[in-house]
């Protein structure tokens, strides 16, 4: 949740995919439905909505991991992000986010505030053009390859820590 706010703050003309549960939560429903954000329901309509956002020239912020990584655990990305990218995006701009010490990590009580003020680092990676992934292959095959490429890219970068 915090990460979405950082990224929306930094980028103009962007749109995000949010958990479809947020559309049902009494506190967040109004805000997200007014925003025109894309609900992450796995339907044709969702993919179409996301593709239209991209074709209209906006960026789409997606968190394919859907959550924060836990140190030492292999990353898993939902394939939806890659599928949308293959359909409608020209390139992907990877953004890497580190937080030290790990706060608001999954499985950590949020009220256990660390002694040190948490420090977030966001770094923007190089644009990844998608045309080479698309090629002549059927969409789902291209999306699987792109997804695997992204996982490898993120695992290497995140475990290496921020660049100085």
């Amino acid at each position: 949740m915090c990460d979405v706010i950082f990224l929306l703050g930094f980028s103009r003309d962007s749109c995000s995919i949010v958990k479809h549960q947020l559309f049902r939560n009494a506190f967040t429903a109004l805000a997200v439905s007014q925003s025109g954000y894309v609900k992450n329901e796995p339907t044709e309509a969702m993919i179409e909505h996301a593709s239209n956002v991209l074709k209209s020239g906006q960026s789409l912020i997606v968190f394919p991991q859907g959550t924060r990584s836990r140190p030492g655990e292999a990353m898993r990305f939902h394939r939806g992000a890659a599928a949308i990218g293959i359909r409608a995006a020209d390139f992907i701009t990877p953004v890497f986010i580190w937080c030290t010490p790990v706060v608001l990590g999954k499985g950590q009580p949020w009220y256990r505030v660390p002694a040190r003020r948490p420090h977030f680092v966001l770094q923007i990676g190089e644009d990844l053009p998608l045309a080479p992934f698309r090629g002549e292959r059927p969409g789902p095959v291209a999306a699987r390859q792109l997804n695997q490429h992204l996982i490898e890219l993120y695992e290497a970068r995140i475990s290496g820590g921020p660049l100085h």
Partner: peptide, 11 residues
């Protein structure tokens, strides 16, 4: 095959 793949499959 996940739900996103299903969209392509049905198509």
């Amino acid at each position: 095959i996940d739900s996103i793949d299903a969209v392509d499959l049905i198509d």
